[in-house]
Design a binder for these strands. Structure first.
Lengths: 343, 343
DNA sequence: CTGTTAGCGCTTTCAG
DNA sequence: CTGAAAGCGCTAACAG
């Protein structure tokens, strides 16, 4: 029952050395005599001493902790990201402070401030749509080590994300190659650079397939799930509805699939579907999704690497990393059907 | 570019008051003259001062942070839990430190120690199977505020989890009512109290349905996904194989579904399935799962409540909270089929 | 209503 | 090889 936590002073007294010596043998920060070392070790053992990281942080001006601020901790997309970040941070002896930005500019700023008050050594941030006006300038002014994840707004920040444009183009071309001409897209939060890039990829794909872009086929799903569902309904209600859909991200996919189920459309028999973002258990979904998968684990890993190097050397020029995606071919595109488009 | 962080001293100087006064107006911890208050506020504004939580923590011996140590951050079961805990902690002005125990006794102990070194005010822990011998005694000795989540080993700790036994019984009875007599179970990590309770529930269900318990029908899935898959295969290879399966948790369910798919069995036509734990998107799975859902968000919320009250009053007697589950009726049980058991 | 002062537990010069 | 002492930035008696 260590009522009062035991301090270095206690250890020093018990070992019969100065508190300085205790500090040094514990941190291995300067040589000490064999005898002193041994006695300190014993005292530590006997007392069950645990260094007080708080005091250490105050003295060293480094907390050995990293902050991660993302929107929607419950978004399974971020689940692997959190795990990867936690793993990498731990490997480097850092702990992770976690904050949910709720995809809201105010909350994001509050969260970032809370993390900075905790004096994290660096910050990982998946910027919300409003970050550009509020959080990012604030961060720039504080000049704290930061790396932006997933959403890449450009600017003078380290950032890591996936390729968005070319992979989306590839998705569209895949559908076009199957004979689809009316290809709809349900995109994510319009204000996100990520979304813009994927929409650009969609347009490029249509163009390269020699297909006209009908603006009515681009639906705005927003970040709420039901919006994607509604958007899907709207697409289906068009006079000349799409025969294939590409979904802009994980969240959209859920809405799209529900929207399709509402109309009792079979995928891919009645309508084809390809998605940006894979699900860990996509093979258990019905239909099994053909998807463009991001390497989320690697994303987290690279982000931590960047951050640690930035902390070490704040004057580095800012770096931007794009990770390749991988095409996972399953059933929802309808490749295995004789006559993909019907009629 | 606030190169050096601005401190209270800076604010005090600029406001022309003592550092004490600054501290008090910032914390609202003692009245100050209108004038002083105003000038401090202005100085804070002008300098962009941010309190140093580290220094505050050292002086106050409280970090306003909570530690959450769970196994498998990537386990979607815990995703909602993390979100709920983060939300509740934030509401109370605490931040969350996160650690992954990797379902391993050593790593768990290391993680818990790391969290304690960070001087978290309290600890939320989903104990691993080995926790009983190592982590829990350690924690008891340190007498740190702790609440155990999800897995309830008993003992002198606050803990919160779901009902396990009765709900599992209900699941079994549901299958039995459909005429199944050979009902198999794929259970989770054998060493977990949670698992033991669910198995007990299974036995009770069989008994109440007047069915004999064939030990061969209880398969050990372990915590790895492929084990559940293998276990499922083994069950199917029995001379007299089960016509229905109950899966012990989320992870097992994935393995079971894959195992069933491997043998090209249709659910529920060829074999019925009910599961402990629901998935957020279970309606998109094929088949749509009939599941016993836990209120994971509430679990997290109650856990934080317990922890905060324990921090406030360490001498409280230890409390144990069981949350009810809810039965989500979908397709995989085969209720909608004419002749559920076949033949 | 306000300021002085003594820590919180640890790191780190600077002298031995 | 070792120790004394001065902080890190903030809080909280204790005196005015």
């Amino acid at each position: 029952m260590s009522q009062q936590m035991v301090t270095m002073g206690d250890v020093a007294r018990l070992a019969g050395v100065s508190i300085t010596t205790v500090s040094h043998v514990i941190n291995g920060t300067r040589p000490a005599s064999e005898a002193a070392t041994r006695r300190v070790m014993e005292a530590v053992e006997r007392t069950g001493y645990t260094p007080n990281t708080i005091a250490r942080a105050l003295a060293r001006a480094s907390t050995q902790s990293l902050g991660l601020a993302i929107s929607g901790l419950a978004n399974p997309y971020f689940t692997d990201l959190i795990a990867a970040v936690e793993r990498e941070a731990g490997r480097a002896g850092h702990t992770l402070l976690l904050g949910d930005t709720r995809e809201d500019a105010d909350q994001e700023l509050r969260m970032v401030q809370a993390l900075l008050e905790r004096r994290v050594d660096g910050l990982l941030l998946a910027p919300s749509p409003g970050a550009f006006e509020r959080t990012l300038p604030f961060l720039a002014a504080q000049d704290v080590p930061v790396v932006l994840i997933d959403r890449m707004p450009g600017g003078d920040f380290d950032q890591v994300g996936s390729d968005n444009e070319a992979p989306t183009t590839q998705l569209v071309e895949h559908l076009a190659a199957l004979g689809h001409r009316r290809i709809g897209m349900v995109m994510g939060l319009a204000a996100l650079p990520t979304t813009a890039e994927r929409v650009r990829g969609y347009r490029a794909g249509m163009a390269s397939a020699g297909l006209p872009v009908d603006e009515a086929l681009i639906a705005y799903g927003g970040s709420q799930r039901d919006l994607a569902r509604d958007a899907t309904h709207a697409l289906l209600d068009l006079a000349d509805p799409p025969t294939a859909l590409v979904s802009g991200n994980n969240f959209m996919t859920i809405g799209v699939m529900r929207g399709l189920a509402d109309r009792e459309l079979r995928v891919p028999e009645d309508i084809a579907l390809v998605t940006f973002d894979d699900f860990e258990w996509a093979d258990l979904f019905h239909p099994r999704l053909t998807a463009m998968a991001q390497s989320i684990g690697e994303l987290g890993q690279r982000a931590v690497e960047l951050l640690l190097s930035r902390i070490e050397n704040p004057s580095l020029p800012s770096r931007s990393v794009r990770l390749p995606t991988s095409f996972v071919h399953r059933d929802s595109c309808g490749c295995h059907l004789r006559d993909p488009v019907g009629s």
